[in-house]
Write a protein that binds this DNA or RNA. Structure first.
Lengths: 164, 164
DNA sequence: GTTCTTGCAAACCCTTTGCACGTCT
DNA sequence: AGACGTGCAAAGGGTTTGCAAGAAC
């Protein structure tokens, strides 16, 4: 599932154009973050990336990681999610286009799904209010029908406090 | 748009049953929070409620506000959202059932919409993965077609850092 | 050489927690 | 009386910021 070199070069170019347009500088740190991020075929948090990079030999500060993740999100290379109550998670926008998330209320397991009908729906809803849809974020909270497969069940929780 | 007394009494009963079931106590503070919350026909944050109550003459601590909002969410009287990067917002679940949010990327204006097709869609998607849908959260990020009406435009921002 | 970026640690915001006191049962 | 809830302030976790040193232009 690793991305091939061509993809990374394309992302580098996209980032270069963005930085040039915004008059931001081409620093080694920014491109090193892009490099590592492109290797991750999954959701990750800023801190996970910080730890990962410093383990891989890329010495970099938390401040730079956060700031670069913000740049990468602003130029659409990354998508930022804010599931549950914890920290923000990021993922490559090109990883799996237009997918949404189905989350088990009991074990927290997350399934990524693609549903083409949602694109048409987001457009028609925005249209209804005189707007032009750019993107959407949908999470469906559900329960495993087969409770046996729900291994990480939480203690005696009720309806759940999890949120958008 | 204020809720009538009957609604509030129903909520009180719902809360009473929940507390009894869970062996939690019926305290004045908890019911005072419910009272105030029932007056608000909009989204609010924990801190807004804290300030509001202490302005209205209800002396109450932040800790109690947070803890009671959690109880009210757990018994489905409130729904908790986590839009953007800021703090969590709450609203009465009975206020406007099954609505989702259309958010202007430029001015942040939020439109609440109801789209019945989403219920069927959430169910069919969950079904596809052997799960039973409980609820969903959808935000559509869009742009005003008529930029004139977009009064609170942000400075030179790009694609946006806002998230789920 | 000037301006922007980095790194560090401290500050920040929202939320949770520890503890002593008060309240519910 | 005993257990639980409240209030306060302090701690906590994730993220941002101020400032001096360093890199980009």
């Amino acid at each position: 599932m690793k991305h091939v070199a061509a993809d990374v070069e394309q992302l580098r170019e996209q980032f270069r154009v963005f930085l040039r347009t915004k008059m931001y500088r081409n620093t080694q740190e920014r491109f090193r973050v892009l490099e590592r991020v492109a290797e991750l075929d999954r959701h990750f948090t800023a801190d996970e990336l910080y730890v990962y990079m410093n383990t891989c030999g890329d010495k970099i500060s938390r401040a730079t990681v956060y700031s670069t993740l913000d740049l990468l999100t602003r130029c659409n290379i990354l998508v930022k999610h804010r599931f549950q109550g914890d920290s923000a998670t990021y993922e490559l926008a090109a990883r799996k286009p237009n997918h949404d998330h189905l989350i088990c209320r009991d074990c927290g397991h997350m399934i990524e799904f693609q549903e083409s009908a949602l694109l048409a729906l987001q457009d028609s809803i925005a249209e209804r209010y005189g707007m032009r849809a750019l993107r959407h974020s949908l999470q469906i909270f559900a329960q495993c029908r087969d409770q046996e497969h729900c291994t990480h069940r939480r203690h005696g929780e009720d309806s759940t406090t999890s949120d958008d």
